[in-house]
């Protein structure tokens, strides 16, 4: 049997070879070198890096093709806060779609050509998996240098349950995806579920009115949980089945996510539910 030390050594060797050899930059990364335990404790600190506020976030390394040129910057002079933050490179547009718990990035990659003018961000709490998606995006971009496809997707390591408002301004997003989230079967772990009454308020904060939350899971119990929690939240309403099935993103979510494919192989069930963000009540 291969011991863990050996495994670590192989991973390091693989990654350093990838990094050094420029000819391999079009080669997709191998998943086996990036596997990680499927669960992460969302309550621990994890040595995360995150911006102090959305204004502090430098997106330029994630979406280099969307960085404004100096000429464009002159057309939109920097605000005082930009200068104070030392930011010079801004994006032409804001991130609008978030895939929370993006895993190995299947949804992002499939969505990139479908929404070519929209910036999509995958957020994943597991370091190794995030690294895999970043390598995958890099390779896909290198494979398609002329078409510019895959320039609109990015992935970063984050704990979305704690730090979503550090990345996104109020009403910045139009779509949020929760694809095959950790079911946290035990009742005492339910607080760790990505959907909860109190977290839904945060999703409502970053989502603009009319924006959609997409959920899919193979665990019926979790599906019922997500439906009941979004239904109970005054900021959301369930999207009708007709509208749901007409949504292109739903098809992609069903078949293109890594978990979706796995469930397909196992001939499992898939439960889909969409929720629309409503206007806030008047005061």
């Amino acid at each position: 049997m291969v011991g863990p030390a050996n495994k670590r050594q192989k991973r390091e060797q693989y990654k350093s070879e990838r990094g050094e050899d420029a000819t391999r930059n079009q080669e997709l990364p191998k998943k086996k070198f990036y596997r990680q335990r499927a669960h992460a404790n969302p309550f621990s600190d994890h040595n995360l890096t995150y911006p102090i506020s959305p204004a502090h976030m430098d997106w330029s390394s994630y979406y280099p093709a969307f960085v404004t040129t100096p000429e464009e910057n002159q057309a939109h002079p920097q605000s005082d806060t930009d200068v104070a933050l030392g930011r010079v490179r801004q994006l032409k547009k804001d991130v609008e779609v978030a895939d929370i718990g993006c895993g190995f990035g299947g949804l992002l990659v499939a969505m990139a050509p479908v929404l070519p003018d929209t910036l999509l961000l995958g957020m994943e709490i597991r370091t190794q998996v995030t690294e895999y998606v970043q390598e995958r995006i890099k390779a896909l971009r290198a494979q398609n240098p002329d078409t510019g496809v895959y320039q609109n997707i990015g992935c970063l390591r984050a704990n979305a349950m704690k730090f979503l408002p550090n990345f996104f301004k109020k009403h910045q997003l139009s779509k949020i995806f929760f694809c095959f989230p950790d079911p946290h079967f035990k009742a005492r772990k339910h607080k760790a579920r990505i959907v909860s009454t109190t977290l839904n308020s945060e999703y409502a904060y970053v989502l603009r009115p009319g924006g959609i939350v997409y959920t899919i899971t193979d665990v019926e119990d979790l599906h019922n949980w997500m439906v009941s929690h979004f239904d109970a939240h005054p900021s959301f309403e369930r999207v009708s089945e007709d509208e749901q099935e007409a949504d292109e993103c739903v098809k992609i979510m069903r078949v293109e996510t890594e978990e979706g494919k796995k469930v397909e192989r196992n001939k499992g069930q898939k439960f889909v539910a969409l929720f629309r963000r409503l206007e806030d009540p008047p005061w």
Binding site: I52, S53, P54, N200, S201, A204, P234, S235, D280
Partner: peptide, 14 residues
């Protein structure tokens, strides 16, 4: 009674 609505954040502490 509208505590589910988050109006904003004051972000700046590190």
């Amino acid at each position: 009674p509208h505590t589910h609505v988050i109006e904003g954040y004051c972000l700046g502490h590190s």
